[in-house]
Simulated assay, not measured.
Amino acid sequence: METHTEKKVIICKVCRSSFCCEIHLKKHMQEHAGEKKIKEKRHSCVQCGRSFYYESMLISHVRSHTGEKPFACTICDSVFSSALILKSHMRIHTGEKPYSCEVCGRSFRNRSTLYVHKRTHSEEKPFSCETCGSSFRQKSNLLTHVRIHTEKKYSCEVCGSSFKSNTKLSSHKRTHFEEKFSCEICGSSFKSNTKLSSHKRTHFEEKSFSCEVCGSSFKQKSNLVTHVRIHTGEKPYSCDVCCKAFSDLSYFKKHARIHTGEKPYACTICPASFSDRSALKVHMYTHTGVKLFLCDICGCRFARSHHLKQHMNTHKKAQ
């Protein structure tokens, strides 16, 4: 009878990466040997002071200040600040995943994602919170966690709400004083004339990009590209954590926040924050008193769709 033995996992003493054999570990150690040859970061950014080993890295970094994105994707029109980021992005379209885990065989589009994945084997959590000692595999997760300890120092003198930054406080104050700009065509209201002008273009702009399969038309080529995937079944955006795939980049980004815990959409009235814009929009109804969801049986209104569904069950039980 054949017996199966567990694979021996070898740990790198420098970075705690995991390997299945000595040959892979030896090859990996050469990377650390190369790191030691670089003595100092000689190229510094004059705007923020960050330093880099190579001039090419500095040039790419400076674009984060200027906003320049000279590298464009020929497939979906996305633009990037460096050729390296563009190269990584192109793998979304090609499906290429050149970085493989020596322990379990899983493949990834980016080397950095592979490094994060390897920590699931070594259980390494190199990013620690200085306040409570909690540890995390990714720096982004640590930054999200630290907000728990951050004090809210900026208070609104009108309603007393507190915020973590003066920027968020200023945005909140506009809800008390700012004039509403309304669209005379559809009645939608906006906080600034700039947003109103942008909205008005949706009423007049021509939809020049048409789907050859079903005839649907779109104002932007990128929207057409996303739509066509409904017909082709293509899902180029794959989650490196759970492998779930998506046809739309926005849905993929929303999903990724499940793993990172990021909640970038903050309420300007109370401390609540959310992982997607639609959840914030629903939450705002609790402050405005708007109840969009109507029961067509008894006329009761609700601020949330699931409250309406719960309410509808009371009618079903009564029948």
Rank of each mutant, 00 (worst) to 15 (best):
E68D: 14
H255M: 02
R42N: 13
K191Q: 08
T260C: 10
N110Q: 12
K139A: 12
S78H: 10
L294T: 14
H121V: 06
L84C: 12
L280K: 00
K173A: 04
H231A: 07
F302V: 04
K27Q: 14
K27A: 09
K13T: 15
E151S: 03
I10L: 15
D248H: 13
K173Q: 11
E124L: 12
F136V: 05
K263P: 05
S128F: 02
F127A: 05
N141M: 11
V116E: 09
C239I: 06
K244V: 10
R147M: 04
N193M: 10
L308D: 10
K39R: 10
T232F: 03
M1W: 07
Q47N: 09
E178I: 04
K200T: 10
V14R: 11
F108T: 09
H255S: 03
C298F: 06
S140Y: 01
H24F: 10
K235R: 15
K164E: 06
S161E: 04
H93N: 08
E157G: 02
M312S: 12
T232I: 04
F218H: 06
K235L: 03
V225Y: 14
Q310M: 11
L196Y: 04
S18L: 04
G133S: 03
N166V: 11
S44K: 13
H259K: 01
K291L: 00
C76P: 11
Y99Q: 13
F163V: 04
Q319H: 15
L292N: 13
L280S: 00
S208D: 07
I230P: 00
V146D: 09
G233I: 01
R91K: 12
H43A: 04
R201K: 14
G187W: 09
G67C: 04
K87N: 14
C15I: 07
H117Y: 03
C159P: 09
M284Y: 10
F108Q: 01
G261H: 05
C267H: 00
T131G: 00
P236D: 02
A72D: 02
K153L: 11
G215M: 07
L196G: 08
T232V: 08
H145M: 09
L142Q: 10
C243D: 10
K87F: 08
S155T: 07
Q47S: 01
G233F: 05
A303M: 08
Q30F: 05
C186H: 08
R229W: 01
D77G: 08
C48A: 07
P126A: 09
K87A: 12
